[in-house]
Design a protein around this nucleic acid. Structure first.
Length: 495
DNA sequence: TTGCGTTATA
């Protein structure tokens, strides 16, 4: 195999160029993997010819570039790594750990991290951000905590902003906003990235108001820290989460004023923010500015936004308008949800059954869930059950949950009871399923069974979370009760 | 050689 690359290469390029691929491959990385990997294979061949394959620094870069070019190439990279005749250095280990941490099996990065140490290679300051990323990606909380301990012992906690940012992200991803904040406060020279990580930590801990507050603090900090696209995108998603339309509009204006590039990523975040805050016209306007960029995510945000605003026809029109962009799994979910909201059963089922062939997207449980919701809302409950029986995967609580709502709306007590019982098998503490069963038994006068359900709720300490509504008041969102109190204070009816 | 990144269902 290697020989074949070598001959191809020699025929095309009799005089191999000096090894400058570190800069060329960097620019190649975003291009489609098939073309990219051929270049990398040539580079690999070239290295073998020139004998530089035994240079650990150069091989490390090659391994890294191949592994990062596409997740499917990690195996190829690994095979080179495993064959390095002389012992690999820490750089090479880091490169592979980095690649795995961003690929489909980040846990492999943690295995390598342990492995390098059993072979006597100590991790350095570059190793920890990758290993922490791998812990975050694979939800390996214990591993991340161990890494934190290990890096403290090695004295990296206080003097490396990359490691500190990775730690903020790690704790933030588990919802430990206080720990993230604590780490952040101890960073002497804060750059944009660690501010961004802090804001993201707040968003992930359901404290989006804090994220917005942190953003304001960042703009006022000394020395000044300039916001970048990721700042704007994170703040926009925070605004969407709490419905803070005023701040959302302001960040949109800020993007224009500070000449930040409104690329697809930022555009997608703004579309979603406006849609979630109820300003669908503003969402449409942003979408028009970025729709030509050929990114399925922007389309997904727009189609989904239109669907929840009741513009199902427009959403589907947009979906069928996708010519140059291939719909991804999310776009198809959004299209199905549009059908669901508009009661377009046949259209939705056609999308579900045709998606593999038409778009090459394998239906997931989310797609089946939408279709079950679609049938359920339309009152076609027996068909919903048939679909569940035919699915290639086991139904989850979310899927049963949408069917339970449908059973309640269409007053199908018998099926509802079955669904609620299935849900309690999967999640014995599910509040909604308990309440449903209780109401069914109580309204049928079956007090013994109703009492039994109530007892089980008591034993499991299941509590139905109280419903609440949100309103925006003075640029921030509060729950309705708090908002009303504030309003009453304003008009002088309350102190 | 490094850290932060948006979208969907219920």
């Amino acid at each position: 195999m290697i020989v074949r690359f070598t001959t191809t290469f020699t025929r095309q390029n009799p005089t191999p160029k000096p090894i400058t691929f570190s800069s060329t491959t960097k620019t190649l990385t975003p291009s489609p993997p098939n073309t990219n990997i051929n270049h990398l294979k040539q580079t690999h061949a070239n290295l073998i010819r020139s004998g530089q394959i035994s240079n650990p620094l150069i091989v490390g870069k090659l391994v890294s570039d191949i592994a990062l070019s596409s997740p499917s190439n990690i195996i190829y990279a690994r095979s080179i790594f495993d064959r390095i005749a002389i012992s690999p250095n820490t750089f090479t280990w880091n490169s592979l750990i980095r690649a795995y941490s961003r690929g489909p099996s980040p846990i492999e990065a943690l295995r390598l991290y342990l492995h390098m140490q059993t072979l006597g290679y100590p991790p350095n300051n570059y190793t920890f951000p990758f290993a922490l990323k791998a812990s975050t990606e694979s939800s390996a909380r214990a591993a991340g905590l161990a890494l934190h301990g290990s890096l403290i012992k090695r004295g990296f906690e206080d003097n490396d902003v990359f490691i500190q940012t990775s730690l903020i992200d790690f704790y933030g991803s588990f919802g430990f906003a206080v720990l993230a904040r604590d780490l952040f406060d101890r960073i002497p020279d804060r750059d944009v990235t660690c501010w961004n990580a802090l804001m993201k930590a707040y968003v992930r801990s359901d404290r989006a108001e804090e994220a917005v507050r942190a953003f304001r603090a960042m703009t006022r900090s000394r020395p000044p820290v300039r916001a970048d696209e990721i700042t704007a995108l994170t703040v926009a998603s925070a605004c969407g989460a709490v419905g803070a339309l005023d701040v959302g509009r302001w960040i949109h204006g800020y993007v224009g004023r500070s000449r930040l590039d409104l690329g697809v990523n930022l555009g997608t975040a703004l579309i979603d923010m406006y849609a979630k805050c109820g300003d669908i016209d503003a969402a449409r306007a942003v979408f028009e500015a970025v729709r030509g960029r050929g990114d399925a995510r922007a389309w997904g945000a727009m189609i989904g936004g239109l669907a929840v605003h009741g513009f199902a026809r427009e959403a589907l029109g947009l979906f069928y308008d996708m010519r140059t962009v291939d719909p991804d799994s999310v776009v198809l979910t959004a299209a199905l949800s549009a059908c669901s909201h508009a009661g377009l059963v046949r259209e939705g089922l056609r999308i579900l059954y045709g998606m593999r062939e038409a778009y090459g997207v394998e239906p997931t449980i989310e797609h089946y869930g939408c279709a079950v919701d679609l049938l359920g809302r339309a009152g076609r409950l027996s068909e919903a059950f048939e679909l569940i029986a035919r699915m290639p995967m086991e139904p989850d609580v979310v899927l049963w949950g949408s069917l339970l709502v449908a059973c309640r709306v269409h007053r199908d007590v018998e099926r509802g009871e079955r669904v609620a019982k299935e849900m309690l098998k999967l999640d014995p503490e599910h509040a909604g399923a308990h309440v449903f069963l209780f109401n069914v038994y109580a309204s049928a006068g079956e007090w013994a069974r109703a009492e039994h359900v109530r007892g089980s709720m008591w034993d499991r300490r299941v509590k139905k979370p109280p419903g609440s509504s949100l309103i925006e008041l003075g640029g921030a969102c509060t729950d309705l009760l708090r908002g009303m109190r504030r309003t009453l204070r304003w008009v002088g009816l309350r102190r």
